[in-house]
Amino acid sequence: MILLISDLHLEEGRPDITRAFLRFLDDRASHAEALYILGDFFEVWIGDDGMTPFQIDIAGALKALSERGTRIFLMHGNRDFMIGRRFCRQAGCELLHDPHVAKLRNERVLLMHGDSLCTRDTGYMRLRRWLRNPISLFVLHQLPLAKRQQLASRLRSTSKTETRMKASDIVDVTPDEVIKVMRRYKVRTLVHGHTHRPAVHDMQVDGRSARRIVLGDWDRQGWALQIDESGAHQQPFALD
């Protein structure tokens, strides 16, 4: 069994999500071969040197899971793209590049966070290119923690305001971009998060059947995609 989750947005202000995640690790992930976390695991991340006791505890929970035999893979999201090697060492997980092709149950599956597919949101794409530029990342890491925290808070506030004002199709993936990426990586299944719109979309890529599986976010309920001998299944579950 393989499990995939995304968009938990873990933070101290949502203890219900934290409790549900820790139960998820004990009840389900401990029986899995692998756990893939496809971005926005944390609500905000200002650098491994700024880890809070809460974030250190989460790393410890992941480390305990890895020591029980479950392989853990983590991908950056748009909220936690500054997670680095120090956290991964403490959490016992492997950091994946976005996109990443994984062999899941003998199928090549493309894994992404999903924000890079939202190409119609030109303002966000400009900001993303700037934030992910190695020079920008270097500069950000040199800023004092307090300054990074201020910048992160401002970016979160601006993002929430702009998202509410944008049309729903603007903040969703661009269909042509999805096909282009799947064609580039020669896959028939794409799994991503980011949009908070859990669903399975059947589609055609170069005349062949394909599918795009969107992972759900953890807010009013939790979501996990399970891949096993019977196929791929995603079901919500109560946080409390």
Results as ranks from 00 to 15, higher is better:
Thr195Val: 14
Met203Asp: 12
Gly47Ser: 02
Ile5Gln: 02
Arg211Ile: 03
Leu111Cys: 05
Phe21Arg: 07
Ala64Cys: 13
Thr161Pro: 04
His194Cys: 09
Val178Trp: 05
Gly216Arg: 03
Arg68Leu: 10
Cys118Gln: 00
Ser230Gly: 11
Leu239Ala: 07
Ile5Phe: 10
Leu190Val: 07
His31Arg: 14
Leu3Phe: 12
Met75Asn: 00
Thr174Tyr: 13
Gly69Lys: 10
Trp223Val: 03
His196Met: 12
Gly92Lys: 09
Gln221Asn: 12
Glu162Pro: 07
Glu12Phe: 14
Leu140Gln: 02
Leu239Ser: 06
Tyr36Gln: 04
Leu8Phe: 04
Gln204Glu: 15
Phe138Pro: 05
Gly39Leu: 00
Arg28Ala: 13
Ser136Asp: 09
Ile58Pro: 01
Arg120Cys: 12
Leu95Arg: 07
Leu35Gly: 05
Ala59Ile: 10
Thr189Ala: 06
Arg71Pro: 06
Ala102Leu: 07
Ala91Tyr: 07
Pro15Asp: 09
Arg154Trp: 08
Leu239Phe: 08
Arg197Glu: 06
His9Lys: 13
Arg183Lys: 09
Ala102Pro: 02
Leu151Tyr: 02
Thr119Phe: 05
Leu35Met: 13
Asp206His: 01
Thr195Glu: 04
Ala64Trp: 10
Glu94Met: 08
Ser116Cys: 11
Ser66Pro: 07
Ser157Pro: 04
Phe24Ile: 10
Leu225Ala: 05
Thr18Ile: 06
Leu95Glu: 08
Met182Arg: 01
Gln55Trp: 07
Asp26Ala: 14
Leu3Cys: 10
Asp16Tyr: 04
Arg85Asp: 11
Ile37Lys: 00
Arg28Asp: 14
Arg148Met: 04
Arg148Trp: 02
Phe41Arg: 03
Asn133Pro: 05
Glu67Asp: 14
Ser159Leu: 03
Met112Lys: 02
Glu43Trp: 00
Lys180Leu: 14
Asp49Glu: 06
Tyr185Ala: 12
Asp115Cys: 05
Glu12Asn: 13
